[in-house]
Amino acid sequence: MYSGKHPFLHDLHKNRTKWLMLVPAAVVVILMCYIPMAGIVLAFKEYNYHDGIFGSPWAGFENFKYFFKSGKAWLTTRNTVLYNLVFLCINTFLQITCAIMLSELAGKKFKRVTQSVMFLPYFISWVVVGAFIYNLFNYEFGAVNTFLKGIGAQPIDVYSNKRAWPVILVIVSAFKNVGYGTVMYLASIVNIDGEMYEAADLDGATMWQKIRYITLPCIRPTVVILFLLAIGTVLKGDFQMFWQVTGNNPMVLDVTDVIDTYVTRSLLTLQEFGMTSAAGLYQSGISFILVLIANHIVKKVEPDYALF
């Protein structure tokens, strides 16, 4: 009956329940994301309140210039990408390890307590983390140097040490995110069909073998999708973490400056919406290209795992 119609309309009718189930989420996304998205034009405008977003005069690529002007574009882009990749790898490894341990562990009480406890860092804001770090590493009063002086060693000056900061950032990132991410993998492990383990037990498989041949392959889809999602944010990154933990320290900026912190510093007093928008568009554009590539590869290998 509908065979003559466009395939899309046909599907719309045939799968109308499915389409209807998509409607609420789509409406929210359209309202909260797609309509305001028109504001991207700001990146190419010299905004004024009187003419509004669309009426303001065009500025061409003027708003993008400052970002490339002081030669920091490459440095900050590199730092952003590298940090995000390292965080991703280390955090994912720790999260999966913890999830597997928690899922297999026998002691129920211990499990409960550790699981809850690992969530605590999530509630400590970056401002507080930054204050702790400062308290730890402050040259004159910091806990580390107080200890070092106590045992007669030379105090160290962490805040001028470029090599220390990548390590510190990786550690605090893990500290804040491991508990949170573990839950995601735990949920994925829990979803694995229990019969597979029972069959393996019957075959006399060891713990390690079960993890290697059942658990890890079964959580692969989750790993892949979280990796893909992370690629999409590889140029953004946790602004508060970099800003608060390093204290915006100019001595080590070469190794701690990411795009967001750089842009914030530049535009602090200028308040140019167009320039902020331009930096955002640059980040989105590059991320988008990276995701398209990554997704394309994944789709070739295993279409089910692809994002879109």
């Binding site: 400052y66 530049s266 535009l267 320039m275």
Partner: peptide, 23 residues
């Protein structure tokens, strides 16, 4: 010169601040 000011503001906040504190 807005673009230049943005770029220089960043330098003020970093290199200049360091010198201004004798670092």
């Amino acid at each position: 010169v807005k673009n230049e000011i943005a770029a220089m503001g960043e330098i003020f906040d970093t290199d200049y601040k360091l010198l201004g504190l004798g670092f």
